[in-house]
Design a binder for these strands. Structure first.
Lengths: 137, 137
DNA sequence: CTCATAGAGTTGTACTCTACAACTACGTCA
DNA sequence: TGACGTAGTTGTAGAGTACAACTCTATGAG
């Protein structure tokens, strides 16, 4: 029934969101954007937190972070272990630019929706994402 | 203000769907799965249709299709141009196996939802995906 | 009928994201 | 103090992707 449809639509969505993000703001990849966004939201998480949250390998995060740092968007609090990651001013600006483009595209898509539907859709998405899909071992 | 939330949740979703699909059924990648699925759904579309639908480059689709063919999951109707792509019996089986895993995970996630919410969520997703996000030039 | 052109597909190349494995560096605790 | 666990890095490999240059095929104008 409905979950057949949900399954299909989620797959379509997953393809498109990424591709679109990349088209809209090639300077900051989808991955970089989400990592940077979370660093900002938490005000200084560690690399290992990002890896856990997004189910990425340590090495992947390490390289992403190194790249963001090289570009001046992120700073590592010095110190050997559990370094805090802080978004720089340039990073904030880049984040804002990327978000703006994405939000604009989103607004275009949601143009015909009324307020109640928007709230309901947002609610369902939050509810869905909040569920932990992993199987307890 | 709901679109702030929608924006955020869509990004989370995009990350997870892919990663999860890959974890659940590594034999058939997320990409291969969606392409094969659409070939089956349409009963013989062309490569160029897949490219248009998923906003992929021709070359990407070409290689994916070649790989699926090499693995015996897809057949190309012979003939030079606009070849129809047909899912083989093996392809159907592989699709079913991948879908089963994903659907099971989905069902686990949606376990607490009642029928009305499921229908509503599916409806919103369909509506969202149906909107063409591209800007007319 | 013939050839020019547009459309479909392929191939070469290069880049990003990613995982896994092996390694290093740093703390912590017995 | 030394062993162990945690955080992070580096080497390597493979998938997915785009872009550009190419080939092949159908179609239609003359």
């Amino acid at each position: 029934m409905s979950d057949e449809a949900i399954h299909r639509e989620l797959n379509t969505l997953a393809r498109r969101v990424r591709a679109e993000a990349h088209r809209l703001h090639p300077a900051l990849s989808f991955v970089a954007y989400t990592l940077l966004g979370h660093a900002r939201a938490t005000g200084g998480c560690r690399a290992v937190d990002l890896a856990a949250l997004y189910q990425l390998d340590k090495s992947t995060v390490s390289r992403q972070v190194a790249d963001l740092e090289r570009r001046g968007l992120l700073e590592r609090e010095p110190g050997g272990r559990g370094q805090r990651l802080r978004v720089t001013a340039a990073g904030l600006a880049e984040l804002a630019a990327a978000a703006a483009g994405q939000r604009e595209a989103l607004a275009r898509r949601l143009a015909g929706w009324d307020e109640a539907d928007l709230r309901a859709f947002a609610g369902y998405l939050e509810r869905y994402n909040a569920t932990d899909g992993t199987v307890s071992p």
